[in-house]
Structures are given as structure tokens and as C-alpha cells.
Amino acid sequence: MLGRDRFDTTELIEVFVTAKGSIYQSDVENCLYLTFSGKTSRLSFQSLNDLKKIIDKVDLGHMCTLIEHADIEIILLKDNCFVLSGIEIIYLKEILQGAFTMFRLNHIITDCLDRLVIS
């Protein structure tokens, strides 16, 4: 985990931001910064993709019906550990879905530009 002061925000490109968190991209480092629940994590694209797959698979309905255990999901991802409540999973899911929509949009635009004939 990284504190906000550990990276230079001027070199970061906003990918997706909500009131609960954000994802920024660093083209210099080829990585992404996920700020959520008061902390910032530096993740590769692969790790962010893995996190999205894990979050998408979380059964929120099942979590809410647990009586004996707290509604907490612990996600271990390489160097990062996320301890999330049910509501945090909903917020994070929104951020990740938004970010991946932006990644796809960026890919479509880049692809179109790559296909242009340079005269």
C-alpha cells in the first residue's frame, strides 16, 4: 500500500473517479493507482483485472445472509490485501466497472488511430 504522498499525481491520468474512490493510470510506470477506502494501491493492469474478476465473483446475497460471521470479504492479491464489507464491495465494483469501460473505450480510440494511414 502507498500513501497519497508517495506518488506524483501530476504524471497520472484519470481513468475513473467516484465519490468513494478512484483509479489513475501512470504511463511512465505502466501501472495503475487504485485509491479506495482511505488507501492507495499500486497495481499492474493484470492485477487490477484479477481484482475485478474476484470482486465480480463475490456473492453479495450470500454475504448478507451470514449470521455467524461478519459480512467481510478478504481479498489477497500479490502484495495487496483488501478487507471489504458488503457495501465497500458494491462501491469498488462500480469503480472497477467504470475503469474497465474506460480502458475499452481507450482501446477502441487507440485502435482507430493506429489504423489511420499516415501521409
Binding site: 493510470q25 504511463d27 505502466n30 495503475l32 493492469f45 493484470q46 480502458f103 487507440t110
Partner: peptide, 9 residues
């Protein structure tokens, strides 16, 4: 903005 998605795969 780099296309990290395409760079990865």
C-alpha cells in the same frame, strides 16, 4: 494515454 489493456494482451 497508453492502451494498457492492449499492451497486456
Amino acid at each position: 494515454m497508453k492502451d494498457l489493456m492492449r499492451i497486456k494482451s
